[in-house]
Design a binder for these strands. Structure first.
Length: 640
RNA sequence: GCACCUGUAGCUCAGGGGAUAGAGCAGUUCCCUUCUAAGGAAAAGGUCGCAGGUUCGAUUCCUGCCAGGUGCGCCA
């Protein structure tokens, strides 16, 4: 049992013993200050009115009772203070045992089994295959990889899906651009997707100024719905070429996927048709007979909303369109079909082909509508849980998908579908200016836009970070590892749900609260352990009782008080989809270790007792940092 | 119009019904003949947007304002 739960159970028992009363919502937390112990509860303040006694009086009685229970092995002190908090201080022996347990469990510290092998389909990255990836996509991928790893760590079976929209307007635009814009050439670009980046924004500009071209694109989009049309094959080829380039960028940063799902295959394999048959027969999905959405199919969402403005230009349809009046489903429509497939509700599966980009570490598959000769029994349908890492702006569209599943009677699936929304990535005013974006309107942040060609390509950002590291520290073996650590930590250290204002200068200023700081601390622990020449292993068979140190100093205690919290932080960051909580924990751990390292000799500790304890703590920090960084998608360099 | 998000130190952000509101950066000081200075230590920096309400207690919850952002497209 986790220690906080253990405390709660005991408080429950004490309250019951004294007041003959059941309390369920007991708050047990780590107090802000160490002088208030390791755990504290406000229970006396909470029940004061109920039992008609002063909080201090209650706290006094509870403490007396608690001290009579078998808490003493864990806590050396249970006491209360004004205005009635009860504080628990962990015993030094218990604290010292944690590193021993960490090091006995080898590299599994923090792992859990709560997932029970349940399958999760995790969708992230999802770049439209018509241009280069930019730092907005980067945030998506970083959050996605964190979720992948932390849920795997807790015993789930996570399958990472990369949804490739190879049918949309964007790809059609890029294809028109490739045909029509002849003064720039792919061979002049380092990567094909960089060429496509320029083509796309140039073509958008052309389309905005020419109505005929816009009509041409409409026509093209219709043709693309037919997989057998020659133009369709051509587009698929272009989208694939760009997809592979995008994947190379992601894989340079260590992102891996299990399967790429092509939007075109959702249409070609009639996943949509089958879904639409079910939707059509549902009362909550209807065909608009008149109004602005005449001829479209819509999902009712109005039940949740209060009112709408139906006047003039401000008219907004509150229900969500899923099929256009020309009969073609839009993104949301296809997304419903996609999710029906994820949960295995259609009885149809894709065919799969191996996709070798040359840089993935695990086997990658891509869907196909054509039958394949694959020996392996591979499938990605029929999962228990669905996580979608999609930006906050799409909350409404995803609600429509969730609601549709519920309308069709798939209530559990609807509940088990979680939108992991993350805030949009903006460019700071300064950075936008450097990219040549017009900043005369004096805003403090600027949205990126593929259509306008505004944004920082991930590949370019990687190069800038590399250069910065090279300038500062010279060429080292760990350059790529440190660069990836810097980039990913930067993307994950902020609250995921909030917008992020990306400033190039700031993000290249790598010090303090950063990935390399954590990596550096890891390298430090590694160096110490190497120099200890197996001291821990030699001492490990000794009677631990003889090695218990009763005079722990402040720095040792401070570090020990952080080491035991790792498992609870892992669970918290997973359940709240909060990588930043883990980032902060690791940073604080490093800070405590570095402070300890600065003040106390480890290898030259004055006694065996101290050396054993200090090296054990060093080893624990080493394990936690490696595991913690891994969850963030970051490698721990043995040397820096 | 309706809905959602945000407002905390000069800047970027944590936190969150309680006990003295925390970091990093920038700026001011110290510490490498000593286990990796990509480090450590010290001082300084705040009416937690404003006004009410609920509460023993509000920066945190509720309401109303003010300011910024986003969504409600036959785009994805």
């Amino acid at each position: 049992m986790e220690i906080a739960e253990f405390v709660k159970e005991n408080i429950k028992k004490a309250v019951n013993d004294i007041y003959n009363m059941h309390v369920d919502d007991i708050l047990v937390e780590h107090p802000d200050k160490e002088m208030w112990g390791d755990f504290s509860t406000n229970i006396s303040l909470k029940i004061s009115k109920l039992v008609n006694q002063s909080p201090m009086e209650i706290a006094n009685k509870l403490c007396y009772k608690l001290r009579g229970y078998e808490l003493t092995e864990v806590f050396e002190e249970v006491y209360y203070v004004q205005p009635g908090f009860i504080n628990f201080r962990l015993s030094k022996e218990w604290l010292q045992n944690v590193p021993l347990l960490v090091n006995t469990g080898l590299n599994d510290y923090g792992k859990g089994e709560i997932g029970e092998g349940k399958r999760i389909a995790l969708e992230h990255s999802n770049v439209n295959p018509n241009k280069a990836t930019h730092i907005g996509h980067l945030r998506n991928a970083c959050v996605g990889q964190f979720v992948e790893r932390v849920y795997e760590f807790l015993g789930y079976n996570v399958e990472v899906q990369y949804y490739s929209n190879d049918l949309g307007v964007q790809v059609a635009t890029s294809m028109m651009g490739v045909e029509k814009i002849k003064d720039i050439h792919s061979k002049d670009y380092e990567k094909y997707d960089h060429y496509a980046w320029d083509i796309y924004s140039r073509m958008e500009t052309l389309l905005n100024n020419n109505a005929d071209l816009a009509l041409e694109r409409e026509d093209l989009l219709k043709k693309l719905e037919d997989p057998n049309h020659p133009i369709s094959k051509k587009q698929k080829k272009l989208a694939f070429k760009i997809l592979v380039e995008n994947l190379k960028t992601f894989q340079d940063l260590g992102f891996d996927y299990d399967v790429v799902v092509n939007e075109s295959d959702i249409v070609n394999l009639k996943l949509w048709e089958k879904t639409f048959e079910m939707l059509k027969n549902n009362d909550n999905i209807y065909l608009a007979k008149d109004g602005v959405s005449k001829g479209c199919w819509l999902v009712k969402l109005s039940a949740n909303k209060n009112s709408i403005d139906k006047t003039g230009d401000n008219y907004h349809e509150e229900d969500k369109i899923i099929v256009r009046s020309n009969g073609v489903p839009n993104y949301t429509g296809k997304d419903i079909a996609y999710h029906m497939w994820k949960f295995g509700l259609l009885g149809i599966d894709f065919n799969y082909v191996k996709l070798d980009t040359g840089t993935q570490t695990k086997q990658l598959w891509i869907t196909s509508y054509l039958p394949q000769n694959v020996n392996e029994n591979i499938t990605f349908t029929g999962v228990d849980i669905v996580f979608d890492v999609i930006d906050v702006k799409q909350t409404y569209a995803i609600e429509a998908v969730k609601t549709s599943l519920a309308y069709l009677g798939f209530k559990d699936q609807s509940t088990n579908m979680k939108h992991i929304n993350y805030g949009f990535v903006y460019l700071s005013r300064e950075t936008a200016g450097e990219l040549g974006i017009d900043i005369s309107d004096n805003k403090d942040k600027y949205g990126m836009s593929g259509r306008k060609g505004w944004g920082i390509k991930i590949d370019d950002f990687i190069k800038m970070v590399d250069k910065k590291l090279l300038d500062n520290y010279g060429a080292t073996d760990s350059l790529r590892i440190v660069r990836n650590g810097a980039i990913k930590f930067e993307m994950l250290k902020y609250n995921t749900f909030q917008d992020l204002v990306f400033d190039l200068k700031g993000s290249l200023d790598i010090k303090g609260y950063s990935g390399p700081y954590v990596q550096y601390t890891f390298a430090r622990t590694n160096s110490l352990l190497e120099k200890s020449q197996g001291y821990l292993e030699k001492m490990f068979n000794m009677n631990k009782k003889l090695l218990i140190n009763s005079n722990l100093n402040e720095k040792e205690l401070s570090l020990l008080r952080w080491i035991y919290r790792f498992p609870e932080i892992v669970k918290k960051s997973a359940s709240e989809f909060a990588p930043n909580a883990l980032c902060e924990f690791l940073f604080e751990l490093c800070h405590r270790f570095n402070s300890f390292y600065n003040d106390e000799p480890i290898l030259n500790a004055p006694s065996d007792k101290e050396k054993f304890l200090r090296l054990n703590m060093t080893k624990s920090v080493n394990v936690i940092l490696r595991n913690g960084l891994f969850l963030l998608g970051i490698e721990a360099p043995s040397r820096m």
